[in-house]
Design a protein around this nucleic acid. Sequence first.
RNA 1: GGUCCCUUCGUCUAGCGGUUAGGAUAUCUGGUUUUCAUCCAGAAGAUCACGGGUUCGAAUCCCGUAGGGACCGCCA
Length: 442
Amino acid sequence: MTTVTRFAPSPTGLLHLGNIRTALINWLYARTNNGKFILRIDDTDLERSKDEYISQIKYDLDWLGIDFDETFNQSSRFDRYREQFEKLKADGRIYPCYETSEELERKRKLLIAAGGKQVYDRSAMELTDQQKKDYEAEGRKPHWRFLLKTERMKWDDLLKGEIDIDLTSLSDPVLFREDGVPLYTFSSAVDDIDYGITNVIRGDDHTSNTAVQVEIINALDQNKITFAHHALLKASTGDKLSKRDNVISISSFREANMEPISILSLLATIGTSNSIELKDNIDQIKSEFKLSTISTSPGRIEIDVLNALNKKQVQKYNFSEIEERLKKIDEKIDQKFWETIRGNLNVVEDIKQWTDIVFNSETIKPSDKDYIKIAMELIPDDPWNDETWGQWTSAIKEKTGRKGKELFLPLREAFTGLNHGPEMKLLIQLLGREKIIERVEL
RNA sequence: GGUCCCUUCGUCUAGCGGUUAGGAUAUCUGGUUUUCAUCCAGAAGAUCACGGGUUCGAAUCCCGUAGGGACCGCCA
């Protein structure tokens, strides 16, 4: 049997590190098992789903290099859900309920106050035909609940091991809303069957939901799906990840000029027993992937780790690999420029700061004027090479008697305006004799 | 309140009854780079959440407690 996995985001927000980790794991599981990976857009909630999020999701996946073999929207399958709904209805597995949201909300609050189980009381099952008729006459339309019959649902979770859930602690799930729209719990079960999903790998937040879904799947067909639940990721503060938390959205990282491989490397190592390191590419991640390395305890995202990985990647880039990108930032960036500057960048685009410094025409007034004056008197003639800086500073040293930081730092500041940066030996060659003379305002 | 899960260096983790509790990353120190970064070498860092129990022996098995998370929606 071919392995088939799926990633099923709802287009109600941006993909974040947590979501994309689930996507990556499913993708990796499919790809390493010679299987299929399906992207399913869970957009049954028409009001909250937005087209812009659908395209964002696809863009994010593509940007990271996570490809899929097939994609579909749940909104295109309402007929099928209706069909399966009729089947459950005929089998007597679902029952109509007439409570309004407000009534249910009130009931729930009462249950909480009483300190009892916050589980739907199944009072709709007691309704007589006449009562139902009366409700309908009132203009009420029923929503439909699935009757949970199993007391304990057990399965062998690929990540968590033996799971044994008490289904009596859960409410009978609503499968169809009053307006006829199927809910996730149902549509997902239907699709997982119809599309031959063999492995559902998802976050721990779905664990008890899985118990419910397995019973639904069994009511429709015989469950053949193997489930795996991974621990959720936490924010670096220890809080839960939120969809509305833009700082960890994939698009925000893209806007911050983060490299895809840095994000992938983080996701492939965080919350796993793998070494925290930068991977060469997604193929390497694929070849090293093992589901069992994923931890069952929630890990936290340290943005500093991501930043460090990104910095490593930036410094690893050969000029030829990102020449096009660099030319877009500034035509004048050449190989020598890149190799001189890259060690001082956190993200590739930071190079702008250095094209400004090297190519602009602003002058700098040195604070240590007398010293710089002496230095400028000793400026070597063209052509400059790797030896120039050493010769020049030796001459300055001899004349002024300065050494170490006192000797070098004022020069760096006078030429670049910064107290840190690439090796001066190389940097002055990028600047050139003429530019340095122009720059220093005495 | 109920159900299910989690807890080992700052962080991510290995560990399946006997280990000097291992690795990665971050940190610190030294060397290289006449700065920073890189690189190399080294160091420090964990009363294994707590309390009991079982055992000759527990991070590991059992019970309890605490802390954290998830779910108990006409969201997904």
